[in-house]
Design a binder for these strands. Structure first.
Lengths: 358, 358
DNA sequence: ATCGAGCATCAGATCAGCTTAACGTTTGGG
DNA sequence: CCCAAACGTTAAGCTGATCTGATGCTCGAT
């Protein structure tokens, strides 16, 4: 009988590409992974890995086997979920991954509700960029994660993961708002003073192609210094891609992840930035927020098969309850098909942007 | 992650009922099985076994988990089958279980063809009663098995196994055929001299209810001594049930498994017997064979998921080729729906017969 | 009441699998 | 062109999981 633990190593290898990465992800030494994969090949009787130089690649048989591994692991996840449902009290720990903004805005209320409903359930939160979520969910480091996806930043599907929509929010262009501004006024300057008041309702082109109108708003800032997130994060990719789509490459001055800090920097004229509504809940004075027709969609991701796990259900319920009745303009995500085959969670930042660079 | 080896123990327990039986089947000591199941319960966090006196029973959670175990093991079986397909040469050993008659009649030709087509494949044959096939397939002792099922002997479905039809043959009542017979002549005495000549085509009621006509033929022998197979075998159950359905309990004189020997005993007047056509290919003189409207269906059984394993496919092909062009009256099984969800293989001799006893 | 079947537990032995350490190879950069 | 970092493999040693064997208990049958 094929060893499922070894199949799991193979699956990780198919995602990460190198044995060293698999080892790091699953907390082993590369030696152990190498030995176990060799053993797997031995019991399979077929070559699964092709040693090419200092790198390994999966053979067709290896790729096929990964498919079976995914199926088996999914079923085991389902079994674990059913067992957890059978347990009388919902106890143990849930490891939650969340991007920084979510940790501050939507998570606290959800955790409070969770503690009220299930006192024995101990949530553990990890602040983590969505780009790292997929590997850590697969590896079992995390059980649930809040991720977001932006227009312009495609998400590649992951067979091992599943996700449900949570909310959708508009994006804003943050510029300095001073009467004697040296900044060129953005053309589409209908900017609301605070999105918390006006809400997301004033974003004109709700769902259509976000390219053209966004370009109009952005090109006015093509010569401004930009404040973006740390390279490697999804938010960094988002800003760069949006600018590329508008036809220019942003001149980056600062790398700052926290949107509160970003807005403070904008207020003192250190640059412009793109911020999502949740990151601009309480903007400092002197910042003009221009609603863009780009949106950010936040989803709840988990391992495929774990969607019925009571802890996941409880957290999902708590998160939705915390989002739905909110007076904020950001509505809950349109109750889109909550099918289990809905677009999976994002993995990592892929492929270069298709737009040309001047 | 749930340990699949332990899940396999749980599945076996659900079939066999006692830890001791599981241990014997999987070549462990009861101690090891007990420890592993305890460990499984610990990692499940729920009670899976209910210790009731000196016996264990599965809890609802345990039963549910068995369902997942079946699914996981089936998928692993599929994976193994696909890997074997990817292997260039079909080599290794196939362990085949077959009932004695099949071992002598249909298996040799198939093994010869198999050796011709796949010289590197080494078949190992175990002569075994169909009643024991299911456990041994599940345990991995066997890879493929020839089993048969009789009218009157219901087969209980087994989620872990799958099967394909191979052939169908009529049953005969064997009685002494002497001019000055002290035996009462069977009413439906149209007996062909040799079934190999007349074939199964002269059995009147092909598929209909076999009860009534069979009763007519059998009741004439209600006072004869009977020769039946060893208790515990499927063939034993078949004769007893058929007689019960005809309204009497057979007076058993001999327990003999080999149908050739049975017919020899019939020829010298030691009793009467029910024999399938394959068991009566070359009957000795002095035996009258009366065709009955009962049929025996032979199937090829294997673990669910292994249906695409090249070794299984090769053996199935060889068996079918050996049966189809045969000049014998016994046709190949009517090409009934070869769906993978066709009636699974027989397990063991179940439930008492519904017919009353005088 | 006694016996045997079945299961749990404990101590000891065995073996699979992990880590450390050392080595060969490849590849990208200076 | 050369070097250093990255990657994978192998050998040796160790640890923990798991199996065996012995013991004790409970229950049902003779």
């Amino acid at each position: 009988m094929l060893d499922v633990r070894r199949l799991r190593l193979l699956r990780e290898l198919s995602h990460r590409g190198t044995i060293a990465a698999v080892a790091e992800a699953l907390m082993f030494t590369p030696s152990a992974v190498s030995q176990q994969l060799s053993a797997l090949e031995r019991e399979a009787g077929v070559a699964l890995l092709e040693r090419t130089g200092r790198r390994v690649a999966l053979t067709p048989a290896g790729i096929a086997l990964v498919g079976h591994a995914e199926a088996v692991l999914e079923r085991l996840e389902q079994a674990a979920a059913e067992l957890a449902s059978a347990r009388a009290d919902l106890s143990g720990t849930v490891r939650i991954g969340a991007f920084p903004t979510a940790t501050r805005t939507i998570l606290p209320a959800a955790l409070a509700a969770l503690a009220r409903e299930h006192p024995a359930l101990e949530p553990m939160v990890d602040e983590i960029d969505p780009a790292e979520v997929a590997p850590r969910l697969r590896a079992g480091d995390l059980d649930v994660a809040l991720v977001h996806e932006y227009d312009f930043v495609p998400t590649e599907p992951d067979l091992a993961l599943d996700s449900l929509p949570l909310l959708e929010e508009p994006m804003y262009l943050a510029t300095r708002d001073s009467p004697h501004a040296a900044l060129p006024a953005p053309d589409a300057s209908r900017g609301a003073a605070s999105p918390a008041a006006g809400g997301g309702a004033d974003s004109e082109a709700g769902a259509g192609d976000a390219g053209a109108p966004a370009r109009v708003a952005l090109v006015g800032c093509r010569d401004e210094p930009w404040i973006v997130s740390t390279p490697g994060t999804l938010c960094h990719a988002m800003t760069v891609r949006a600018c590329q789509a508008a036809g220019f490459a942003p001149r980056v001055r600062h790398h700052i992840d926290d949107f509160g800090t970003v807005l403070a920097m904008v207020a003192i004229g250190q640059g412009v930035a793109l911020v999502p509504e949740l990151g601009a809940a309480d903007p400092p004075g002197g910042v003009r927020l221009t609603s863009l027709p780009m949106r950010r969609r936040t989803r709840i991701a988990f391992r495929r098969g774990a969607g019925t796990h009571p802890a996941v259900v409880a957290l999902t319920t708590a998160l939705r309850a915390g989002v739905a009745p909110s007076p904020h303009g950001l509505g809950p995500a349109p109750t889109s098909p909550p099918s289990p085959t809905s677009p999976p969670a994002p993995a990592s930042i892929p492929a270069p942007a298709p737009s040309p660079r001047p």
